[in-house]
Amino acid sequence: MPWSNIAAAQSRAAVLGGYALALALAGAEISILALAVHPKVGPDYRAYYIDRTTTCLNRDAVGSYTIGETISFKREGHKQANNIKVCGWSGPAGDGTHSLGETSRLRVNVTRPSLGGLKATLEMSAVLRPPQTEQRVVVLVNGILAHKMVLSGKEPQQVSFVIPQAALAGAKTLEIAFDYLDGIPPTRSASNIYKRAIKLVSFRLNETGEKLSPTDLISGP
């Protein structure tokens, strides 16, 4: 075989090899892209990172709670409070824990002496920026609407409400979600994960049969 033919054959092989490599690269990249557009993630990951339908990334966090116990969300109570904070909280600051984003959650494993009803008592204040004068908050317990409130003024208010029986039915764990309708972003273009709405000072659950002090009976609108 003449040398020129060998050189030509080698050149053809190099060209074919080059095309094969290019094809392999293109194929690999398309395959990786196809995988990437179909992520294999759980609903919590998807909701927070991909769909952005929530600002509160759900976690397995759950704290134990004994009925009648008051949990402080000030600095001194942060160890206990941290156990029940799931997401959507920042702090504590000196006088309470700020909400962060459009939803916050608490989750507690409740030790109950009887299977009676439960009443929640929250001490909280509104985060306000003029001209805004109030914050609307919707509270859901185990996904069931429990209370709607309007907080106004900077001083903490005590809010009490009875948790609907439907939310308690057989449940040992209570998930309390706070939805903020009027959260304030730090700047116009800031992400909604930075919105502020309330500052939670304390949280307590009582059995509804229990005798309550007069201050406990002041309830939100």
Partner: peptide
């Protein structure tokens, strides 16, 4: 992207995590 898909389950996790840094 392939590494993130295999470890996190989301090849675009490097983009999606920007939400947690407040980048919108």
């Amino acid at each position: 992207i392939l590494f993130l898909y295999l470890t996190v389950g989301d090849g675009f996790a490097f983009l999606h995590v920007q939400r947690a840094f407040g980048r919108v």
